[in-house]
């Protein structure tokens, strides 16, 4: 019996390590993947909003200081990179700038 044990004792530590790795992996990998997806989606939305704001700026007949500042800030954030929170800030700024230029255009 002890001999059988000594031949296969390595199964236990290796098995425990693998189990832990699988458990940690199966929790961490989807979480990391979801985070990466969220970041890419947020940046995609931010870039779309900035592009749209840029078009609105070009179409606007007057200069809106506040909107210029907001868009510059948004572009600065994009240039600096960062997480989804930064991307959402840039999106928010670009949207606000866009709506200001649109209001100026409609007026």
């Amino acid at each position: 019996m002890t001999q059988v044990m000594s031949l296969s004792w390595w199964v236990w530590p290796v098995g425990v390590v693998l189990l832990c790795a699988a458990g940690v992996g199966s929790v961490l990998v989807p979480r990391l993947r979801a985070a990466s997806l969220e970041r890419r989606v947020a940046w995609s939305a931010a870039r779309a909003a900035i592009d749209r704001a840029a078009v609105s700026r070009d179409a606007a007949p007057v200069t809106v200081e506040e909107a210029e500042r907001l868009l510059a800030e948004a572009e600065l954030v994009v240039a600096g990179g960062g997480g989804p929170a930064a991307a959402r800030t840039a999106t928010d700024h670009a949207r606000r700038a866009d709506s200001m230029w649109r209001a100026a255009t409609d007026a």
Partner: peptide, 21 residues
Amino acid sequence: GMPALPWLFAACVLVFLLLSV
């Protein structure tokens, strides 16, 4: 059943790994 225990354990680990991966 003692000699079979490590292999039973190994099989469980393997299945768990596959299902996790």
